[in-house]
Design a protein around this nucleic acid. Structure first.
Length: 126
RNA sequence: CAAGUAGAUCGCCUUAUCGCUGUCUCGAUUUGUCGGGAUGGAGGAAAGUCCGAACACCAGAGUGCAAUCAUAGUGGCUAACGGCCAUCCACCGCAAGGUGAGGAAAAGUGCAACAGAAAGAAUGUACAGGUUAAGCUGUAGUGAAAUCAGGUAAACUCUAUGAGGUGCAAUGUCAUGUAUACUAACGCUUGAGCGCUGCACGUGCGAUGUUAGAGGGUAGACAGCUAAAGUUUGCUGGUAACAGUAAACGUAGAUAAAUGAUAAGGAUUAAAGCUUUCGGGCUUUGAUACAGAAUUCGGCUUACAGAUUUGCUUAAACA
RNA sequence: GGGGAUGUAGCUCAGCUGGCUAGAGCGUCCCGAUGGCAUCGGGAAGGUCGUGGGUUCGAGUCCCAUCUUCUCCA
């Protein structure tokens, strides 16, 4: 797995997202929180579909929201291969930023590693 | 020089690595896509959604009257506008300049707390003048306004002009899925009702009907979708807004929503320190705003670190 | 993307056609009553009327701009 994050790996289906939030489980590493759900995709080559989200309530301006989402995507892109290579089943993921203050790439990167590590450990122990 | 005033322009840059996305093209392909190459990829406000349009639909958006809403000196510009330009008047400012919802009170209705004799119909008190006599005349006092048929229209209203409604979540095609089902009322060609404010007329639709209730399903793709009342420069006309003309340019299209992250260097600037040939230079630590396209344009309004630049004004005081 | 509403005391709300010092309930504080607590009675404090302009003699109220919060739509 490479350091890419193309369109096909994005979580877009509204139906799937509703299912994810109603049935999925969550783990968190403040200020990040991940909701995940084991599922199957039509395309067998894709094992993960991931979305990121930032609350409009905590960040009023679109610029701030977009910036944090970009940081989240960037951190996810750079770190996913390290943790996901030994996971065999398929998952839909949603990563939320639940903090209320701004942040920078270093802290997001560190927390993303914690989060993905915890997720990997939890999933492979099943 | 300083203070002020009215504009105009810009609004961090470069390189490397890893990524995102549109278009073109070559190759592969299980027709879902994948890989290589080339080339594009946020703003002056993209924002607020306050106006005006384009465009699309509403069973033909029809006519008249009314209601509602908007605008309001005069003249011009514009596709249009509540925008812009010029100008008159009023107010503010020493001035440059700024602000103005600036039509009508002899069409009518209403309103004016407190104070005051009196706020639309009555003239009181004191003083002075004056007369045959008389609120007949002036002044004082209350108040924002006090004798004149006044003020108030960002009170109703009148006048003039304008406005059909809904908005790209419009709309069309395809795919998936379901309930032309259920309940109530009315009606079935002698017409229920509908055509997005009301009434009248006209006209059209109408039985697999209309209205209401409760409920079921989908929520994916493609088109719309980016070349446009376009931008820049010059010339001509015009006080100007603007118009005409010539040349050049060819300018984002995402959809849980692209335009980013990291590193290095530079630029501007603040503070502190060192230094100086008083122009400045060096080092350290910071700072670099407001803000992210969502159908597209023209405006308005609001937010904004800092930088560049042009015109104009300056009474008094100080140098 | 496009509509609609809201903001007044710590909380929940009034305030009608502009007019004197902006009210009510709950809550807070003080006093009384009780051996004490609650209930009860009396009194007090507490307001940039979201913000900034304008109209007017005078604005919570009328007009304009702006901010906050809530809500509807396929």
């Amino acid at each position: 797995m490479s350091f890419t994050y193309p369109k096909t790996e994005k979580l877009k289906s509204q139906k799937l997202i509703e299912q994810l939030f109603s049935e999925g489980k969550s783990i968190s590493a403040y200020p990040l929180r991940m909701v995940y759900l084991q599922t199957n995709f039509e395309d067998d080559n894709i094992r993960f579909k991931t979305g990121v989200s930032v609350s409009k309530r905590n960040f009023k301006n679109a610029v701030d929201r977009n910036h944090i989402k970009r940081l989240l995507r960037e951190a996810y892109r750079l770190n996913k291969s390290e943790y996901f290579n030994n996971i065999l089943s398929s998952y839909a993921l949603m990563i939320l930023y639940i903090g209320k203050d701004g942040t920078d790439f270093d802290s997001v990167d560190k927390k993303m590693k914690d989060l993905l590590g915890a997720f990997s450990k939890k999933v492979s122990s099943l």
